[in-house]
Design a binder for these strands. Structure first.
Lengths: 336, 336
DNA sequence: TTGAAAGCGCTAACAC
DNA sequence: GTGTTAGCGCTTTCAA
């Protein structure tokens, strides 16, 4: 950091005091039109762009909104970030993103670091933070929105949906179309707590009908289309008779679909593939994959709006919980 | 922003002065082991996490690295961000992301805003910023890395590849396998300058062989698999005889492939589909799509490392240009 | 090894 | 409308 032009330089160039320059640049009224003009011109001429560090320190308000997501390689989270960015654009608030890699300790560190920047608000993925992290959030005294989940009690606000219910609903839908021999295939096991919730919901719903899955395949890998291909290959080698597979998300289901197309297994006739998210990519094969369509962009947008409204009220107010439950898309199965 | 615990609180609790507390927390030597222990304990007990605004303002150094990308909905950029994040993690530097939506004015505003946070470095997508933006970057007096392109002169450092050459090379490869009736299909026209460069390279290489494309289809939409499906449908309706299509990227090519699979057009026999990037998703159909494989994660990593080394040298030093040219993957065509 | 003083660049609060 | 004064919470500098 270096000797950049300061407000004093602008003031001097405009022939006014620092305060008048400050007020003019921030668009406060109570500055004469002449001076506003002089200051603006001077600022532009000397290429002044201020120092937010000093401004925020002095005014005790910052315009940063911290956004913490588990991953960037799952398109779902960039989509959420996109929603946040869109809503924040033009409001004067700026999102700052952090990535945890599904690691609780990393998340704690990132949040501490973010708090040290005195953000105006915090958007965090999930409700299942460890106690220490929750304490940090609760005591931070800034608006917090937890996103992507609603199975649990939020620290402050939350926008998302019930993953347990999503898993349960998919099971019901698949049972309703007459499937019997189920498999579950999951990724990122033990880290993606929301996927685990869907799995629980799914298995519980099957159990309620006295059905046990034929097989569960749980992998450590991050989800990807390629992993989906690999896992269905493994699965079918050992259990060729399954007639329905629930994947922890659409990436895996998509990989499985490609596999089926390549080896000539008819979907959904021979085998039903179910995923989660309703990614754009699966619409490349309309109707082939059963999925729950989530609204990632919208969740990001709502989260940002919740933060903004909390800030405006100057107090956290009533915690708000907004549920945007996914809708099941049965694809071709729905046409029967 | 609010009355949070300050360094003074920690100092008082530890029974030392503010300075000793500051030094202890920052791990400076020249503090007695006893005091380090006392301060650390006190800090933990009262949940102190500092104030970076004050620290950066005072020390005139910040640990923010601004990263500006055009889009979040194209997975390529989250992958770059991922590379940056990985390299920066543990160094004490923190990435701050900005999204321009391929809008030059938005980019300028975002950069100004970032500069007002006195970042330690800046990573910006592309080399074709308008003069005003280039001036801002040049005068900012922080290390700058421009990424994803090398057709042009960087402000400081740059890591990327020649899009012109990428387009030219694809054309040569497609000519070499005997294709004659070409089409070009592009998206986000007029905004994605790097796609335009690929197109120019492609068309120029065709011209060098006295070949004109049968048709060009240029759409305004953002690239997506769905758009690819739509565009190839439109294209083939009017020009059923093309035997090779170059798409502005893999998303479009992937959509086209799905279309061909669905309607029973054999790829690559009847029609060759070429894209750009080498996305994971296209490996779901191994060998079907001709593409140039770019290393997004690596570009992000190298960019972050360039910033770090510029910072360490305390001076911008020799501008560095690092070219990571994509490799063409011919897929099944390569097996002939 | 420790502490006191000064000040980073800005804005809130209060004069004029 | 405009300017002056006094910090924001920290680190740099210098003295002890």
């Amino acid at each position: 950091m270096n000797n950049r032009t300061t407000l004093q330089d602008v003031a001097t160039a405009a022939g006014v005091s620092k305060m008048t320059a400050s007020r003019a640049l921030r668009g406060e009224k109570d500055v004469s039109v002449t001076n506003v003009e002089k200051v603006r011109t001077a600022a532009r001429e000397i290429g002044y762009y201020g120092n937010h560090l000093a401004a925020s320190l002095s005014s005790k308000t910052s315009d940063l909104i911290g956004v913490v997501v588990p991953s960037l390689s799952n398109i779902v989270f960039p989509e959420v970030m996109s929603g946040v960015t869109d809503v924040l654009y033009g409001t004067g608030f700026q999102p700052v993103f952090g990535v945890t890699d599904y690691d609780a300790e990393k998340e704690y560190e990132i949040l501490r670091k973010m708090l040290s920047w005195r953000p105006a608000g915090l958007i965090v993925t999930g409700l299942d933070q460890p106690p220490e992290t929750l304490k940090l959030l609760a005591e931070a005294d800034v608006p917090v929105v937890q996103i992507m989940d609603c199975d649990g009690v939020p620290v402050d606000n939350c926008v998302g949906f019930s993953h347990t219910k999503a898993g349960r609903d998919i099971a019901s839908a698949l049972l309703a179309v007459g499937r019997k021999r189920f498999a579950y295939v999951g990724c990122n096991v033990g880290k993606d707590t929301r996927a685990s919730k869907r799995r629980s919901g799914f298995l519980n719903a099957l159990n309620a009908h006295q059905i046990e899955p034929c097989v569960e395949l749980l992998a450590d890998a991050l989800s990807s289309v390629e992993t989906g291909r690999r896992l269905i290959h493994e699965l079918l080698a050992k259990h060729p008779d399954v007639d329905c597979i629930y994947f922890s998300n659409d990436d895996l289901a998509m990989g499985a679909l490609c596999y089926c197309i390549n080896v000539g297994i008819s979907v959904p006739e021979t085998i039903v593939l179910a995923g989660f998210n309703g990614l754009d990519i699966i619409q490349a094969f309309p109707g082939k994959i059963v999925t729950s369509r989530t609204s990632r962009q919208e969740i990001g947008e709502v989260a940002a709006m919740m933060i903004l409204s909390s800030i405006k009220k100057e107090q956290t107010g009533q915690p708000k919980i907004r549920i945007i439950q996914p809708e099941i898309s049965l694809g071709e199965l729905g046409l029967r």
